[in-house]
Design a protein around this nucleic acid. Sequence first.
DNA 1: TTGTTTTCTTGTCCTGGTTCAATGCCCGGC
DNA 2: GCCGGGCATTGAACCAGGACAAGAAAACAA
Lengths: 201, 201
Amino acid sequence: MQPAPYICCMFDSINSYLTRCSPVTGEELEYFDSLLEYKKVAKKTTLLHEGDICNFEAYIIKGCIRTYYIDEKGIEVTLQFAIEDWWVSDIASFHDHKPSSMFIETLEDCELFIINPSTKELLLSKIPKLERVFRLMVQRNLSVLQSRLFTTIATSAKDKYLDFINRYPTIPQRVAQHYIASYLGISPEFLSKTRTRLSKK
Amino acid sequence: MQPAPYICCMFDSINSYLTRCSPVTGEELEYFDSLLEYKKVAKKTTLLHEGDICNFEAYIIKGCIRTYYIDEKGIEVTLQFAIEDWWVSDIASFHDHKPSSMFIETLEDCELFIINPSTKELLLSKIPKLERVFRLMVQRNLSVLQSRLFTTIATSAKDKYLDFINRYPTIPQRVAQHYIASYLGISPEFLSKTRTRLSKK
DNA sequence: TTGTTTTCTTGTCCTGGTTCAATGCCCGGC
DNA sequence: GCCGGGCATTGAACCAGGACAAGAAAACAA
């Protein structure tokens, strides 16, 4: 067995993320890492509140985060669950410096890498290649969301749930069930009923 | 009245689109234009069929196009209506050269500018600035879709419809009502009932 | 350990929206 | 200028899923 090329360090996961997206040199990687801010955040912390301007993009080293909206009646709609090796942000707010209409909240104790708008600018101007990486990230995001919209509109609660646990098999073990209901767009009670009906068959 | 700075030509609209997104020089614009393929397409033409690999991004000079999915039961879900000054494509399929799961169809006679994957590559390598333009396009797309998902999940058919005509006031005059229903995720019959209820008040 | 809070389950009743079918309408083709 | 096919409308029956309430079970704090 070959020795590992690098000693395991906290940058490993994000660096491997990056190299998977685009061929970057060692120096570029080093520069990238040098601009990252490391942050530990406790469970149940709200990282972004509706009305705030989102000044971060966070890469999750460890933990679980959800982003959600709240409507006038107080109903929550979960937009995304993010776990290890994912990015979280409100890009629209981050990019245009305008107030966000969503919330971002940790569901577990988290370790994050943070970049803010100015470090992102710096990064992009120094390593233009990254423009592409970020574009690909957003593109992937978009196509996932497109297929989710389709599922949301076209399928029953049961099928939405089955699709969810199929797509994200590890999430149900990590987050409360009523969050999943709010992701699927159904009531927590009905999700519970759907689950028992499924397990009886 | 001042004379127009340029004679009106078919590139005007797309060039103004581009300059709105990013500061580009005259030469860059010219190069960009030189790579565009102009195309006329008749009403009711399917530009992309489920299973095909999408080999175009189309800018609409004139006309109206919709993109949609079809589920197993044959129910259509309209993902997008696109009119003048919009882009249409299945980016995921276009970019990764993989089979698309959507349809793209003209609803009116259309005039388009087309770029294919290789011209896009060429464009991006010659004018790296465009990376950013395309990223912004996708980002805007994403945040529109996010808020649509929210509306779809959290609001009633009536409110979804009101939101739609508020956001896209010109669309209802141009496309058949049952397409709008399929965009909102409700049955054509119920949209009709909702509309009559609204007009009675 | 115990008390407190949050989450999950289950039942009953209710409603927004669907399905199906019938009717009328408008628009395009010949 | 008329005929035919897609659209919109309306009504009646139906149903997936919501709202509310009450209890059980976890999760957590002290």
